[in-house]
Simulated scan of single mutants.
Amino acid sequence: MSTPILLLNCGSSSIKYQVIDVDTEAVVASGIIQRIGEESGSLDHKLDGETVHVDRGFPNHSRALNYLVRVFSAHGPELDTIRAVGHRTVHGGERFRSTVVIDDEVLEGLRELSPLAPLHNPPGIAGIEAAREALPDVPHVAIFDTAFFATLPREAYTYAIDTETARAHGIRKYGFHGTSHSYVSKKVAEILGRDYAELNQIVCHLGNGASISAIRGGVAVDTSMGLTPLAGLVMGTRSGDVDPGLHAFLGRELGLDLAGVDNLLNKKSGMLGLSGVTDFRDLLELIHDGDEAAELALDVYCHRLLSYIGSYLAVLGRVDVLTFTAGVGENNPVVRAKVVNRLAALGFVLDEQANQARSKDPRVISTPDSPVTVMVVPTNEELAMAREAKAAIS
């Protein structure tokens, strides 16, 4: 049996895509369209180990997706085999708590939610509209980054601000990277041969964007990102948690308007603001060369992560598994060691040799006698999305 699903991740100036056969879990094709809206753009389409590269301008998402249809027709896979199109959708607010098949009513709901994610939802909507126009004969499905965290208890998602203001404008913690946290936590249970509903887990999704979750018996009970993806851990260019009074301070002292503060905290902060780099390989090279700013950046990064792990230990009461995933989590043994070794007194015992081993496979990096199992599990958000899409159309 074959169930190919086309998955689209539309950013403001790019479209990443994959075709995954859900039944075999094989990636049939993948690619990216870049610099949409600029004079010079590009498309890279990968199929059967070969890459088709095209340099041309794409004035908007609609034209980009129409051209992608032509590329599929010329090079494969055949679009008439596609069973559904899955769209990564960043913010579902309180309205969309699970994957939904897209219709005009859903699209209108997404437009109403755009103020909650002004950098992410509008390009996603543009991609959905363009894809529905280019591929009108298959169902389109929205998979929400926020859906996995719809289970958060009220005490975890409620902000201590005026209740009427919060209710009127949907101001609360939503959480993001939910597809990754869901996939990884389920994969942990599968690898360990344990019942998902019996495990208490902490999952650290550490990429350019970073978040951490507390999952009790398969149910998310807390997470670090909030109303927006800016909250929580230190990230590549995002500050994560800061004193809320910083916004007013920057306005008074630097004359920044709200857009300027937003730009500073989202695009010029985090590891970039602290060290000048976002790639942890570059960061470790700077540290090796004696760069004190880079060393401090790593310490700040790990301190923030430790603080969240500690708080989630308290929230959960018992932790069975701590898992690292995404680019930094999967590939950086230095970060893992700095964090886990600081947790030794709490029952986390790192196997140094296992931690240093290079592998793309899921693996345990704690010692056999460690009270808490520590793992590295590569995330696969696209496969998780494909499964969600198949379930929605079924």
Rank of each mutant, 00 (worst) to 15 (best):
S394K: 07
Q18D: 12
L274H: 09
L8W: 00
I32H: 09
A29I: 00
V219C: 03
D103L: 04
K186Q: 15
D48F: 03
A220G: 02
L350Q: 04
P244G: 04
P371F: 07
V141Q: 13
F280R: 02
G255A: 10
F148P: 00
G329W: 06
H140M: 05
N341P: 00
F176R: 04
L254V: 01
L107S: 00
G347Y: 03
A297D: 10
T228F: 14
G240S: 06
S30K: 15
D351G: 05
P368A: 08
S311H: 11
L79F: 08
G92V: 01
Q18K: 15
L274E: 08
V315D: 07
D137V: 09
P362M: 04
G207L: 06
T379S: 14
G86H: 04
S42Q: 13
N380T: 08
G178T: 14
T151D: 08
L383S: 07
V242I: 13
I212D: 02
Y308H: 09
I15Q: 04
A345V: 04
L152R: 11
R281C: 09
G127A: 11
N200K: 05
D299C: 09
V328A: 01
T325E: 03
I365V: 14
V300L: 11
R252E: 15
I309R: 04
Q201L: 03
K46G: 00
A248E: 12
D145H: 07
S114H: 03
I202L: 11
V106P: 02
A354H: 07
F176M: 07
E388I: 01
E105S: 12
A189I: 10
T24S: 15
H61T: 02
I128G: 00
E253C: 04
N263S: 15
A168S: 15
G92Q: 01
F144R: 12
R238H: 08
F148N: 02
E253S: 14
P378H: 11
V349A: 11
A294I: 10
G209I: 01
A29Y: 01
L313C: 10
V300E: 03
Y183Q: 10
N9D: 11
F58S: 01
R83Y: 06
E50W: 03
S182H: 13
G310E: 10
G329F: 05
R363G: 10
H75P: 01
Y67C: 09
R56S: 10
I128L: 05
S62M: 14
G232H: 10
H247D: 11
H303C: 05
S180T: 15
V85M: 04
S2H: 14
P77I: 01
S185V: 00
R304H: 05
P153L: 06
L8E: 01
D103K: 00
T24C: 13
R56P: 05
Y157V: 00
R35S: 12
C204A: 15
D369F: 06
R167K: 13
V28D: 03
I125V: 15
P229D: 07
K338A: 06
V90L: 14
L227K: 07
G86V: 06
P123N: 05
T228H: 11
L284G: 00
A384C: 11
N263C: 11
